[in-house]
Structure formats: structure tokens, C-alpha cells
């Protein structure tokens, strides 16, 4: 009895934390989404969200987030795989993680320099005889920088999954005459799908609401839902519309979580 009583007591800080920092803010966002600029209760924000401007914005946010996640995955999986094969894997892993400690803004400013008309990228192109190109403020530069920023978060979970993979499974597959490709497709990948899923989750969700990069690297040519939320809260002071977009983002995130959740647990 005594221990059970204590256990309940231990839960109190946890519940308080959840209520104050998770549930209450979400409810506040939902509450604000029902008010217009002048503070009247209204559903117009929701109507407004279904106009072409915001639908287009939602679509392009998803499209860019999808591209960023896909490219990050394509690069991260082989990297994580090779990492598990190296001698000093923890050291190599650290080297990949260290750049993520640098502030995002600093990295963005660095890329403004690198991608500039007279920057490193165009300098290298010049060496092979290609005339300077407009790299900064294009879709390419936006996706490139976003992938660069998110890639450590994709590599980590996949690396962990691969690292925990029991080598005897691979040996067994080889013994039974599976080719390398088949081993990968039928054994390695299915066994590490958990890492891939959490990697996609960690990248896709923040990518959906990126906002500083859209101005610094894409020159406001890419407008995501995150940009719109920032604008509505800081510039227009239309907290209602900003909250409404946030509500849809939250719904989208729940859907993504549901899709990428580990289904094995229930079985």
C-alpha cells in the first residue's frame, strides 16, 4: 500500500508539467483561434483557412517538408549504415552531431555567404568553367540548407536502430542464400524501420513549420505555414488567424504521429 501511495505522489510533478506546459498552451491556441482581430467570437478564421491562399500555403508547406524528409532519408540511411561499420563509430557520430550545436541562424548566415554571387559555391563552379549562377533565394538552396540542418536528427535514430541490429540475422540470411540486396530489403530494412519512422517524424514535423530560413535562404519565395504564423502574431497582430493555422498544424502533426507510430506495440 505504502509504495503505491508514493507512486501516485511521484506522478504529481509530471502531471503538473503536462498540464501547464502542454495541455494549457494547446487549449489557449484553440481558444484564440475563435476570435477575430477585434476580439469577437467567430468562425471566420476557419473559413479563411479554406481559401486558396492558405490552402496553397498548406500544400507547399507539405510539399517542401516531404522533399526535405525524403532527401534527408536518402542521404542519412547509407551514412548511418556506413557509420556502424567504422572502427570509431562514436567519434564519427559525434562529428556528425557537433554541427547541430551551432545556432541555426549562424548557419543560415554562413550559407548566405557560401551561396552568394561571389561565394564559395559559385567560385567552385567557376573553376570548372560554369558561369556564376543564382543559387541563393531559390528552391534548391532552401531545400539544401534545410536538409543540411535536419540531417543529424535523421541519422541518429537510424544509426541506433542499425547498431542494435543483431548481426546473426544477416549471417542467417547469407547462409540461406539471400543476395545482398535481398538481405537489405527483407532483413535489415524491416528491422530498422522503427528508426526510419522516428527519424522521419523528427524531421518532417519541424520542417512543416520552418520560418526563418524561408526569408534568409529562400528570400520569402517559399512561404510555409510557419512563416504565416509568425507574420500573424508579430506583424498583423491577428492572433486568431495565427492560432487557427497553428491548430491545423497540430492536427497535421497528430496525423503524422499516428501514421508513423510503432504498430507492433498493439499486437
Amino acid at each position: 500500500m505504502q509504495t503505491k501511495h508514493y507512486q501516485k505522489l511521484y506522478m504529481v510533478p509530471y502531471f503538473l508539467w503536462i498540464i501547464v506546459f502542454v495541455v494549457a498552451p494547446l487549449l489557449l491556441v484553440l481558444y484564440y483561434s475563435f476570435f477575430d482581430v477585434e476580439g469577437h467570437f467567430t468562425f471566420t478564421n476557419y473559413q479563411k483557412f479554406f481559401t486558396p491562399v492558405y490552402l496553397k500555403m498548406t500544400f507547399s508547406s507539405f510539399w517542401y517538408a516531404f522533399l526535405i524528409t525524403l532527401i534527408a532519408l536518402i542521404i542519412a540511411y547509407p551514412v548511418a549504415y556506413l557509420l556502424t561499420k567504422t572502427k570509431h563509430k562514436q567519434l564519427w557520430l559525434l562529428l556528425i552531431i557537433v554541427p547541430s550545436w551551432v545556432n541555426l541562424l549562424l548557419k543560415a548566415y554562413a550559407f548566405i555567404g557560401i551561396f552568394g554571387q561571389y561565394g564559395l559555391a559559385n567560385g567552385l563552379l567557376g573553376l570548372v568553367g560554369i558561369a556564376p549562377k543564382q543559387i541563393l533565394f531559390t528552391d534548391f538552396s532552401f531545400v539544401f540548407v534545410a536538409v543540411y540542418i535536419f540531417i543529424p536528427f535523421m541519422i541518429l535514430p537510424i544509426f541506433n536502430a542499425l547498431n542494435e541490429l543483431n548481426d546473426t540475422y544477416i549471417d542467417a540470411a547469407k547462409d540461406l542464400g539471400a543476395s545482398k540486396w535481398t538481405t537489405f530489403r527483407r532483413v535489415i530494412f524491416p528491422l530498422t524501420i522503427g528508426g526510419v519512422k522516428s527519424g522521419c517524424q523528427i524531421v518532417f514535423i519541424p520542417a512543416l513549420s520552418l520560418f526563418m530560413l524561408t526569408r534568409l535562404i529562400a528570400g520569402s519565395r517559399v512561404i510555409t505555414l510557419g512563416t504565416a504564423i509568425e507574420q500573424h502574431f508579430l506583424v498583423t497582430q491577428d492572433w486568431g488567424m495565427g492560432s487557427t493555422i497553428a491548430v491545423f498544424l497540430i492536427i497535421a502533426m497528430f496525423i503524422i504521429m499516428a501514421f508513423t507510430a510503432d504498430r507492433k506495440r498493439g499486437a
Binding site: I112, Q117, Y118
Partner: peptide, 17 residues
């Protein structure tokens, strides 16, 4: 329009970008 930016415009103009 090349880009819609904030204070970065100073740097970009100075460097002939």
C-alpha cells in the same frame, strides 16, 4: 524581384549581390 528580405539587404547590396 530577387528576394523579399529584412536587414540582410544591406549586406547583399554592399557585396554587389
Amino acid at each position: 524581384v530577387k528576394a523579399i528580405v529584412g536587414d540582410e539587404n544591406k549586406l547583399l547590396m554592399q557585396n554587389n549581390e
